[in-house]
Computed example of a mutant assay.
Amino acid sequence: MRNLLDLSGKAAVVTGAAGGIGAELSQALAGQGADVALLDISLDKLDAIREQIEAQGRRALPLQCDVTCGNDITSAVASILESFGRIDILVNNAGVASAGSVEELAEAEWDRVMDTNVKSIYLMSKAVIPAMKERQQGRIINLASICGVNGSKLAALHAYNASKGAVVNLTRGMGATLAPFGITVNAIGPSLFPTGMTRALYQDHFLEQYNTLCPMGRPGNPDELNGAVLYFASDASSYTTGQTLYVDGGWTAV
């Protein structure tokens, strides 16, 4: 039987690749045979991930890129196409969170969250879709969150709620209109996973509350998002688009 998750010969792009989830997803894609362009604002943090991907026999292309800046993205995509000759998979992983209610948040902080979590998807997708349309195939995978469909039970995360809700519906819209071009657009909605962004939440009191509310009684492990990204990146999901898969230990089920 053909391996539906096989990505041999494919070229993937992962934004926010230096972070915990970005690094894990990049290695998962390489593990199934994809070459991976690693985009992050911190270029020096990509060296270790590049080495791990190359150790798997795949090519890695680290690029410094501010994904809220159109000029940076245009330059990065040109470099990827020059190096790999194609872009088959885009994982819009870059994101930030910010605690605070609408009464508390400064306007600049609201803009920072919305630009990083939503505008970056618009800019990155806009840059790669022409190459995907030319080949009549492509996979765009956005990182949403349980906070895109649920209010935050344990803290006010209003800008994050708004941004991830936008990701969920942007994914629906893009999935519907890009389907005729052989391009699928889907999203992954994690709950709590260990990353640099969530490290401060791994405190006894918060974690105890989270574990009580989560049906599985624990946060996710880093590699537990790999199956979702490989599904959406591969032929296994060829008839799936506009969907968000919540990898959340049952959080959104109750």
Rank of each mutant, 00 (worst) to 15 (best):
A28R: 00
G249V: 10
S145E: 08
K45S: 14
S145D: 08
S125Y: 08
P194K: 09
L154A: 11
D223K: 07
S237W: 03
W251L: 14
L123S: 08
A179R: 13
A97H: 09
S145F: 03
L25M: 13
Q64A: 14
L143W: 01
T177P: 00
I188S: 01
I49L: 09
G19P: 05
S237F: 02
L201G: 04
A37K: 05
M197T: 10
V96I: 15
G20Q: 04
G22F: 05
M132G: 03
E134R: 14
V254A: 11
A200P: 02
N226S: 12
I89Q: 05
M124D: 04
I53A: 10
G20L: 04
G57V: 11
V254R: 14
G33C: 11
P194E: 12
D66W: 03
G249K: 05
A228R: 01
D47P: 00
G138N: 02
A11N: 12
I89F: 04
G189M: 00
A127H: 07
N150Y: 12
C69E: 15
A200M: 09
D66T: 06
Y122C: 03
L178V: 10
D44E: 15
V185H: 02
G20D: 07
A236N: 09
A187V: 07
L46Y: 13
E109T: 15
